[in-house]
Computed example of a mutant assay.
Amino acid sequence: MKTHITCLLALSASLACAAPTISKRASEIDPRAKEHPEIDFVFTDKKGKPQDVQNASVDTSVKPQGKLVIWLMGHSAPLFERLNSYGLHAIQPHYANKWFGIIPADKRDSGKVLGDIRLEATTGDDHSDLVNIPQPDGMMERSFQFVKWLAKEHPEGKWEQFISEDGKGLRWDKVIISGSSHGATSSARFAKHQKVDRVVCFCGPRDNYETWQALPSATPANRIFGFSHVLDGGWTGDHYCRSWEMMGLNQFGPIVDVDISAPPFQNTRRLITNADVGGSDKRAHSSVVPGGAAVKDKDGKFIHEAVWRYLFNHPVNETGTATPADPDCVKDQQKKAR
């Protein structure tokens, strides 16, 4: 088992070591895992570097919450450090999600394509005619097999608590599904289909020509949280405001600027920032997640620590005051494009 330890500056500004990152290739865990070169989903790149490495961590010195965060984006050590400090287990599975840059634009933007592909990629069930992603290569099964492996190889982490009583899958009532950008959108789409404990969307969701955001949801809308930067193209294009309203998040509070507000941010589910990113929409997009693009104060500390804690820990039954839909937020993006 390959592990590595990354030392980061603790919130107290003293040097401390994060919990070990446990890494394992999906193809080594489950022999059923397959490559799908037709959607550029392979186990190694052209230089032979493994592409199917999965990552997990838990801080066993912190009182556990008994919840598992499944992160649908590239591994983020700064994010996982914070999740572990909250008492959360965290994994980053490798699953067949390379389709989004390959679908022809005329099909991609037709209005009912991306949501179905996202659902197939996350569940491994047949929802789309454009891709063929079997169960062992979907997010659900990859996550389950990874947790089973962790329960065996890292017993001190007590990962078995996330496996269902019949041993056939995960306990999704203990799962927080989260991601940024593409991963945020897939997290939200999956939560429409499968009830989870919580959804945390960084810079997302989008799919601005689709209507799946308004579908009946297995996960109650009060369990869905979003955080994005106002210079992000998802804001300038009305993608985020549209998705948030279609999912009903305006029923739980106004859009709150976290830079001029304090926790609990009016108990809202819709959080934004206007922090200084040098006017860069690209940096704005990534700045809401702990990492290199995140904004720091003059002392070198991240300014959104309280926001990240809120997103993953705020009681879901504590909600803000319902607000009406924003008439300036364009909902019909197809019409706007014409």
Rank of each mutant, 00 (worst) to 15 (best):
A56F: 11
S12M: 03
I103K: 00
T21W: 11
D109V: 04
P104W: 01
D116A: 11
V53A: 07
I91M: 09
S57D: 07
A16V: 09
D45C: 04
K112I: 10
F43M: 10
L114H: 02
H36W: 03
V42L: 06
P64D: 07
A16C: 09
L83V: 12
Q65L: 11
R82L: 09
P64C: 01
K46Y: 11
V62E: 00
K112M: 12
A56L: 07
F43D: 04
T21M: 14
T44K: 13
L11H: 14
I5Y: 08
P50W: 02
G74K: 10
W99V: 03
A19M: 08
P20V: 03
D45N: 13
I91K: 11
S61T: 15
A18F: 04
L68M: 10
I5V: 14
R32H: 04
D40I: 12
V69A: 08
I102A: 01
A26P: 08
S76L: 10
V58Y: 15
S27T: 13
Y86W: 15
V69H: 04
L11K: 14
F100R: 06
K47M: 09
I91D: 06
Q51E: 12
R32S: 08
D106R: 09
F100C: 03
R25H: 06
F100H: 12
S57L: 07
W99N: 01
H89C: 07
L72T: 07
P31D: 05
V42D: 04
A16P: 03
W99C: 01
I5M: 12
S23R: 12
C17N: 13
Y95A: 07
L9M: 14
A18D: 14
K67D: 06
D106W: 08
E35T: 02
I102P: 03
L15R: 15
C7V: 15
E81Q: 15
N97I: 05
H36K: 06
L88R: 04
D116G: 01
W99I: 01
P93F: 00
I39K: 00
L114M: 12
L72K: 05
L68I: 10
G87W: 08
L114V: 12
A13Q: 11
V62R: 06
F41A: 03
T60R: 11
L79T: 06
G48E: 08
L8Q: 14
P93G: 01
R82S: 09
A96S: 08
S12G: 08
Y95G: 09
T6K: 12
K98I: 01
I22W: 13
S14M: 12
L88G: 06
G66A: 05
G115L: 02
R82P: 02
W71T: 03
I22C: 13
W99L: 00
S23P: 04
K98D: 06
E35H: 00
K24V: 15
E38P: 00
L72F: 07
P104V: 02
L11D: 15
H75V: 11
M73D: 12
